[in-house]
Amino acid sequence: MAAAAAAGAGPEMVRGQVFDVGPRYTNLSYIGEGAYGMVCSAYDNVNKVRVAIKKISPFEHQTYCQRTLREIKILLRFRHENIIGINDIIRAPTIEQMKDVYIVQDLMETDLYKLLKTQHLSNDHICYFLYQILRGLKYIHSANVLHRDLKPSNLLLNTTCDLKICDFGLARVADPDHDHTGFLTEYVATRWYRAPEIMLNSKGYTKSIDIWSVGCILAEMLSNRPIFPGKHYLDQLNHILGILGSPSQEDLNCIINLKARNYLLSLPHKNKVPWNRLFPNADSKALDLLDKMLTFNPHKRIEVEQALAHPYLEQYYDPSDEPIAEAPFKFDMELDDLPKEKLKELIFEETARFQPGYRS
């Protein structure tokens, strides 16, 4: 834990890192770190609560700039109880001085990944967590956004079992017609939660990839272990087919990539493993919904509104309290091709509203 900075004593240090967030945020305490930044909790002297502050230093890398800009653009436009918001952003007053960006968010005690390492969940908890994931996802999908990296560590939890989806750095506007060349190379989302079509096709992607990830998360809540822990690309596919069985001819016809289709045709026939054999203690309604989410063919996979209306979630289902976005989200430009200098300018502009004396 960093010592509390005395008023006016300059930035606090946390594990050798400068955290320049005073005077409003003090009493910093280390939480963890990701690929390009550290997260601390801090005391907000204005709202009198502890908050989470993520320090991001992305400006050396085009990919990190892209992810940072995506996350900020999306989260500043989203407003939903099951999606983490941005409360404040701290950065230098000029673009030349801006080396880091500090993002202030609600402090959540833990995440689903940490929880599943230590606790076996009751059916009631599984049901409530799944409902909140789908409630947040309904809003995301209504904005025409794909999260693309749903996994237990991106689901934040607090002691009252509130759940918030975080990390929109890989999110995209849904565009089933656009052929994202190089899709697989830039697709760094965790393999275990990846839909089979991501490994088999490169053309376009749809909201059904997020539903697949939610199915993987439900299976993990039922058993405290990942359902498809593939060691590499082909191993991942083999794990999936080992449980779902061989795809039907109709399902194979959806695979545009001939090499991928021929690979699947070359494999020995596998039978589907019954879900109640894998999860003998699970609620039968939970397994019915799991089956509809972990469907090989993305066109037959359940959609988020149908999933919310499934009998497993009937005690929570309330369409009048499951809000959607006001308007579909649009990125003005494809960020993939922009140089990091341009992305830095866009991050600077996007964060201006939090600067003292800002006038829109």
Rank of each mutant, 00 (worst) to 15 (best):
A3E: 06
A4S: 13
A5H: 06
V14I: 12
T26P: 00
N27I: 15
L28V: 06
G32H: 00
E33R: 07
Y36T: 15
Y43T: 13
D44I: 04
N47C: 09
K48F: 11
V49N: 12
V49L: 13
V49S: 01
K54D: 03
I56C: 12
P58H: 15
F59E: 11
Q62P: 15
T63Y: 13
R67F: 08
T68S: 15
E71R: 09
R79W: 03
R79E: 04
R79L: 14
N82M: 04
N87G: 01
I89C: 02
I90L: 00
I90M: 00
I90H: 04
T94H: 09
I95C: 07
E96G: 00
M98I: 15
Y102Q: 04
D106K: 02
L107M: 12
L112W: 00
L112H: 07
N123A: 08
H125Y: 06
F129R: 00
F129E: 07
L130K: 02
Q132G: 04
Q132M: 04
I133V: 02
G136H: 01
Y139D: 07
H141Q: 11
H141Y: 07
N144V: 07
N144W: 02
R148H: 02
D149I: 06
N154V: 05
C161Q: 09
D162A: 11
C166P: 05
C166W: 00
F168Q: 11
F168G: 03
A171P: 08
V173S: 08
P176W: 06
D177A: 15
D177C: 06
F183D: 05
A189N: 09
W192A: 05
A195V: 13
I198H: 11
M199E: 10
N201W: 09
K203A: 11
I217D: 04
L218W: 08
E220G: 00
M221C: 10
N224G: 09
I227Y: 04
F228Y: 15
P229F: 05
D235H: 09
Q236F: 04
I240H: 07
G245N: 01
S246K: 02
P247I: 10
L252C: 09
I255P: 07
K259H: 10
Y263M: 03
L264W: 01
L264F: 08
S266M: 07
P268S: 14
H269T: 12
R277F: 04
L287I: 07
L289S: 12
L290E: 07
D291V: 14
K292I: 08
M293L: 14
L294N: 08
T295W: 05
F296D: 06
I302G: 03
V304D: 14
Q315N: 06
D318Q: 01
P319I: 03
E322D: 13
P323H: 13
P323W: 03
I324H: 00
P328Y: 01
P328L: 12
F331N: 11
F331W: 00
L343R: 00
F348C: 11
E350P: 00
R353M: 10
F354N: 09
